[in-house]
Structures are given as structure tokens and as C-alpha cells.
Design a protein around this nucleic acid. Structure first.
Lengths: 183, 183
DNA sequence: ACAAAAGTAGAACAACTTGTCTATCATTGA
DNA sequence: TCAATGATAGACAAGTTGTTCTACTTTTGT
């Protein structure tokens, strides 16, 4: 019973993430997953409901991945290196948990749904807040500038890597710059 | 003759930028602009052609705006302040040339068209390159780290401002951090 | 003044969208 | 064993999409 639900969730995430939510119809999801349309509508109230569930699924996976990555480092210097090297590894498609890189799912989704008051936009904002809080909790040097810089450079690196494909230089510069801020 | 073309272009840009390209159909564009459907298809080969023309239009406007903003400052410190204060002003909707803020049109568009080999994605990449080159040409201190940091923080600030709505803190931190890099 | 060009409104079309519904088959728990 | 549950394929309604086309009117250059 829940196997079908998970299958639908994973298939939808794959299709939505790599091809865009508006470009993927219900029919494609059921065709790729091999699940009947009626089964989909018995698990989800509609496409919007499915999108929300997919966002939640991705959020759980991403946060778990990030928590795991940031659990080891001790000093802030190590944390910064660890964070940006993990991002680099993600961009290069070497992070199994996240799948091959297709940008930030939440940024992409937010760009597709321009209505800032929709449930979807709200969830994208929530995700970014959670990521920020996670990074903050791992920092020893509690400086707003440092936290802001880390989050902005991270965001910039993700969108730049997605848009241009290149990222090594950006990651290295981010690390260099941030090391200068840590007292 | 060209009046209709420009009217279509400006109407399409407005609708595409604030509501997303995939969410806006040809019928909406002709309804809002008041131009006949056949006239649209006499000026543009199809929706894709219109999108490319709109991207080009926005690119011209944005580059001209940025060139104007960055023409005054002398030192790199002034350049950094000027750039990020201009961004802040854009986010706040105080830059007439750019209209009210709806994120970066090229990032948003790139997120909607996931096929990285399409004409549309290529143009988005081209725009970002041009912006980077413009900033580079204005910098006295030719440091790759400085240029990368400026571009990444700028990108991060735009997407963060679009997603969360807040930006003042991010802009201030960006300036603080960058001033530490300039020798 | 008049022919050519450029505009108009909107019908038609094929291909798609989400969502509902019918009818049949398989699994399973008591 | 047998009723209940869950899944299946696919037709269907109602709507939207991009695009083409016809028939008519306005603008424009000479």
C-alpha cells in the first residue's frame, strides 16, 4: 500500500527535479512509475498535493544529507571546508543521496510558481530557513556576517553551478573568502 | 509596424517575468496587449522566438542599467558599495528601469527550461557572462577571488531576496565581507 | 486616389492538461 | 472460503495550449 505511494513519490521527484514541475504531467508520472492513475488519486488529492509531498520528501533527504556531512568537523574552518567540498561533490554528481545535480529543487520550484503566497512558495522558504538554522547551530563563532556570507555564497554557488556548469573556481574562492572572516 | 512589436515585447516581458513563462500563454499576451494573434505571429515565428526576443530585451535593459550604476565609482570599495546598494534599491522596487523586483529573470527562466542545451538556457548563460565581464572591467584589484566573491554574493543576494523577501542584512554582510578582501 | 501593406477578430484544429469514473482483476485477513 | 480492499487499464469530460487560417478593416506611401 505504501510501496505504491513511495514509488510515486520517488518517480515524481525525479521527473519534477530534472524536467521541471510544469513540464511534467500526471500522465507522465503514472507512465514512468507504472502505477494506475486511480491509485495516484487515492494516495494524493491532486497534483498540488503531490507536489507538496515531493517537496517534503526532498527536504527530508537534503537535511539528513547535510546533517550527516556537517556532523564531523570541529572548528569553523573545518566546517566551511566541509560544507563547500560537499557542495562541490554534489555538483559533480558524487553524492548518491542527492542524485545527479540539477540545481536546488526549491529555488527551481519557487521560480516556476511565482505566486509568493502559495503553499509551494511557503515550503521553499521554510526549507531555506531550516538549512540556515542547521548551519548556524554548527558554527562556534556566532557572527551574523559569517552566517550570512556562508548562506549567500552557498546559494550563489548552487545557482552558478546550475547555470554555467562550472563551479570549482567558485567553491575555492568561497572557502578562501570565508576563512578570512573567521576570527 | 515596430510599435506593435515593441508593445508585444514589453507586454510579454511583464507577464513572463512576474508570472513565469510556462504559466503565460499566447492568448494572455494578445489579450493584455490588445494586439491580434495574427500580428503576433507576423512579428515572431512562435512562442520560442518571442521568448528569445524577450530575453534579449531584458538583457539590454539590465546591462544598460548596470553600466550606468557602475560608471561613477572610482575605488573598488566604492564599486562594491555602489553595486550592492543598487541591488538593494532594485529589491526594494526603487529602480524604474528594472521595474518592481521579481528575482533574476534569467535564473527564473533557466529554472523553468531544464534542458541545458536549449537556445533559452544558452542565452541565460550568456547574460551572466556579460554581467561578470562588466564587473571585472570595473575592478582595479584584479583578483579572481574578489571577482568570484562579488558574483557569488550578488547571485546569492538576488535569489535570497526573491525567495525570502528579506535582503537588507544580506546586502550589509556582503559589503562587509568584500571590503575585507580588497587589499 | 488607390493599391499594397499591416492590422483586426476570432473560428478551427490537434495535441495536451487535470481529474473522474467504470469495469475488471489480485491480494489478503478472518 | 469469501467478502473487502487495493490495484489495474483506459475511456471520458472539460478545459488549455500553440498555431494556422479566413475574412474583413485600417493605415500608409506614392
Amino acid at each position: 500500500m505504501n510501496q505504491k505511494r513511495e514509488l510515486l513519490l520517488n518517480t515524481a521527484l525525479d521527473l519534477f527535479y530534472y524536467k521541471g514541475i510544469n513540464s511534467i504531467g500526471i500522465n507522465e508520472i503514472i507512465k514512468v512509475s507504472g502505477v494506475a492513475k486511480k491509485t495516484l488519486y487515492s494516495h494524493f488529492n491532486g497534483k498540488n498535493d503531490l507536489i507538496m509531498a515531493v517537496l517534503n520528501q526532498r527536504h527530508q533527504v537534503f537535511i539528513k544529507w547535510l546533517e550527516d556531512k556537517l556532523s564531523r568537523p570541529g572548528s569553523d574552518h573545518e566546517l566551511i571546508d566541509c560544507l563547500f567540498e560537499s557542495l562541490q561533490s554534489w555538483f559533480d554528481g558524487n553524492e548518491q543521496a542527492l542524485g545527479s545535480f540539477g540545481g536546488c529543487f526549491f529555488i527551481n520550484t519557487s521560480a516556476e510558481f511565482s505566486n509568493q503566497e502559495s503553499d509551494i512558495s511557503h515550503y521553499c522558504r521554510y526549507h531555506k530557513e531550516q538549512v540556515r538554522q542547521l548551519i548556524q547551530s554548527k558554527l562556534n563563532f556566532k557572527s551574523p556576517d559569517l552566517l550570512n556570507a556562508i548562506c549567500l555564497l552557498k546559494e550563489g554557488a548552487i545557482t552558478t553551478a546550475y547555470l554555467t556548469g562550472e563551479s570549482i573556481e567558485a567553491i575555492q574562492s568561497s572557502k578562501n573568502v570565508l576563512h578570512k572572516i573567521v576570527c
